[in-house]
């Protein structure tokens, strides 16, 4: 009996280890190649760690390429999108959580549907609509598009956070002399701060990863976001693996930071989005 349970525990730990290895190996490989000197890249093949490490690829990417611009552009776009979406979603999530009104059903339905239909079908019309407004090849255009795409999901997420705050608190504030909006701002919002941080994180991560619309809407280097820049780089200099992977490692950093931020809220985020990535 005892040896059987020991065996089970061993199998359990082994399976867990397999998952951890599977999850981390690609990222590990990315890191490995990014610190491998060019001359060792081909000669050492599948070695797990190069016999000599170098940061020359990172140096090059940071000092002699357009990646810092891409990085900055992506930060601006993702940051602005996260802020805009979080503000709008706080308001609309509050409305869905606290009021019962006639159009509520339709608003929820609209938001759910926008989560279901293939966004790729909007690529052409959005391009056509933004281009006369001068919003193609512009970070502002990207922020607008990304904000719209992320508002529905963020609304449901914020709603779930508001639902967790008892209605009594606002009522107490209103009796204490607050209007509903002041109660929202002074009582409810401060209590939702963790939720707001999580929403910021989710939206930032989503905007940071977006590729197709950025490819379509951005053509020059100046307004390219990181994914666009990296992909262009890959198709142009497809042999500079060390540099590409160094750039990849850099793109990973903000995503990982935000992942740490939203770790605790993954469940809430994924269930609010159920259809979102």
């Amino acid at each position: 009996m005892k040896s059987r349970s020991l065996l089970l525990t061993g199998a359990h730990r082994l399976a867990i280890l397999a998952y951890v290895v599977f999850a981390l190996f690609p990222l590990f490989w990315l890191l490995k190649v990014s610190v491998t000197p060019n001359d060792l890249l081909y000669s050492e093949g599948v070695r797990m760690w190069p016999s000599r490490m170098t940061f020359e690829h990172f140096n090059f990417v940071i000092a002699h390429s357009a990646f810092p611009t891409f990085f900055k552009n992506s930060l601006i776009v993702s940051g602005a999108t996260a802020v805009v979406v979080t503000v709008l979603a706080s308001l609309s999530g509050y409305a869905l959580s606290r009021f019962s009104f006639r159009a509520k059903y339709w608003i929820v339905a609209l938001m759910l549907i926008t989560q279901m239909f293939p966004l790729v079908m909007l690529v052409a019309p959005i391009f056509k609509m933004l281009s006369p407004l001068g919003l193609t090849n512009s970070l502002t255009g990207l922020v607008i598009v990304y904000s719209a795409f992320n508002v529905p999901f963020a609304t449901f997420l914020m709603q779930s956070f508001f639902d967790g705050i008892p209605k009594d608190l606002e009522e107490a504030a209103m009796i204490d002399g607050a209007t509903q909006f002041i109660a929202f701002r002074q009582i409810i919002l401060p209590l939702t701060l963790p939720g707001i941080a999580a929403t910021l994180g989710f939206v930032f991560t989503a905007a940071w990863s977006e590729l197709l619309f950025a490819l379509m809407l951005i053509s020059g280097n100046d307004a390219a976001t990181f994914p666009v820049g990296l992909l262009t780089f890959v198709s142009k200099f497809s042999v500079d693996f060390g540099q590409m992977m160094a750039a990849g490692v850099l793109a990973l950093i903000p995503a990982c930071l935000f992942f740490l931020l939203i770790q605790r809220y993954l469940v809430q985020g994924l269930t609010a989005g159920a259809v979102k990535g």
């Binding site: 998952y19 951890v20 999850a23 981390l24 690609p26 990222l27 490989w29 990315l30 190649v33 890249l41 081909y42 599948v46 991560t205 940071w208 990863s209 590729l211 994914p227 990296l230 992909l231 890959v234 693996f241 590409m244 992977m245 990849g248 793109a251 990973l252 995503a255 990982c256 935000f258 992942f259 740490l260 770790q263 993954l266 990535g277």
Partner: peptide, 28 residues
């Protein structure tokens, strides 16, 4: 945290990363 990490990797990077893993020149 470790096994959920891939979810946070931007999808384009996940794609590139695996394309490189499958590449006989640099991938194992």
């Amino acid at each position: 945290a470790l096994v959920f990490l891939p979810w946070a990797v931007p999808s384009f990077l996940a794609g590139l990363n695996w394309a490189w893993l499958f590449n006989p020149v640099i991938g194992p």
